[in-house]
Simulated assay, not measured.
Amino acid sequence: MTEPLVIGAMVRTLGAYPSGWRHPGAHRDPARDAEVLRRIAAAGEEAGLDYLFFGDWLATGPDLEFRDPYLLARIDPVSAVLFLAGLTSRIGLIATVNTTYADPYTTARSLASLDVLSGGRAGVNLVTGAEPRAAGNHGRAAHADNETRYDRAEEFVTALRRLWDSWDADAWIADAERGVLIDADRLRAANLEGAHVRVTGPLNVARPPQGRIPVVHAGTSPRS
């Protein structure tokens, strides 16, 4: 049996080519990214793409102007996909989250919310981060070493899945006659006590339509 070909697009509003913004008519003002995101999403759905992919970078600096100008100023990816959830009807929406600096409960909640609001079209790309300047932006003295970052990432994935599993699919009863809204036995805590991640739960968002939201990872190292 032949597997279907899945095709998506990586969204960079200023483009991937360092001097592309100089082309006549090119988008060059990040303050107007909303207009470009609307056009990209509409074009992606019309073309039949399966998903839009939003990367991330947790720092900026003038050195990026001539290397990766699209990293200078960019919309937070989770905010971007939430924005597009209401403007699209079919296409998948994948946001990048950096597990080294993100909070697992907040991440699980945002993505479960996206999945509910989009009717089951959420995805998350998990990265550990390669930008040392991100440490200072998050109150850390230094960027963690590779092994420590991946140790935390593994616990982060476990936390997400346990939190998304907080609610069984049939936990909501909503029996008005009996006055019973939920089956408490079908609501559970996460209770993760790892070396890097600790979270109790349960999650205060209904179970995502997909159950567990698909996790994407684009790393190429052995640990990845």
Results as ranks from 00 to 15, higher is better:
N146W: 11
R207P: 00
R188V: 11
T200C: 09
L52P: 01
P208F: 01
T128M: 03
L163K: 00
R140H: 14
A47N: 07
G86M: 08
D175H: 01
A102I: 03
E65K: 06
I7K: 04
A85G: 14
L114W: 07
S166V: 06
D170P: 01
R188W: 00
A26S: 13
A189G: 10
S224W: 05
S79H: 14
S118E: 14
L203Q: 02
D165R: 02
P18G: 06
A31S: 11
R109I: 08
E154L: 07
S79I: 13
A16D: 14
V157F: 01
P4E: 15
V197W: 00
L52A: 09
L93F: 10
A159H: 06
F66A: 14
A142V: 11
G86A: 15
S79E: 09
Y150T: 05
L58I: 05
R90I: 06
Y101V: 10
A108Y: 02
S19H: 11
T99L: 07
G120W: 08
N137I: 01
Y51I: 05
P30H: 06
E177A: 15
G20L: 09
A130N: 11
L37E: 02
R90Q: 14
S221H: 06
L5Q: 12
S221P: 03
D175K: 02
G201Y: 00
L84W: 05
H196N: 13
E131K: 00
R121L: 07
G201C: 08
T88W: 08
R186L: 14
G129N: 04
W57Y: 12
P214I: 10
A42R: 15
V6Y: 11
P202I: 08
E131S: 07
L192G: 01
S118M: 12
R178C: 04
A206N: 01
G8S: 06
D145A: 13
E46C: 05
E147C: 02
S224I: 09
L71C: 01
L181N: 00
V180K: 08
R32M: 11
D165P: 00
L5V: 15
A195H: 12
D151G: 15
A26Q: 06
G179N: 07
R38N: 12
L87I: 11
A134N: 04
D56T: 05
E3P: 01
V81K: 00
R74A: 15
P214V: 12
V205R: 05
R74P: 00
A144P: 09
L71R: 01
Y70N: 06
I75N: 03
R198D: 10
W167D: 01
V199H: 04
I40K: 03
F54S: 03
V215E: 03
G139I: 10
A218G: 12
T158Q: 15
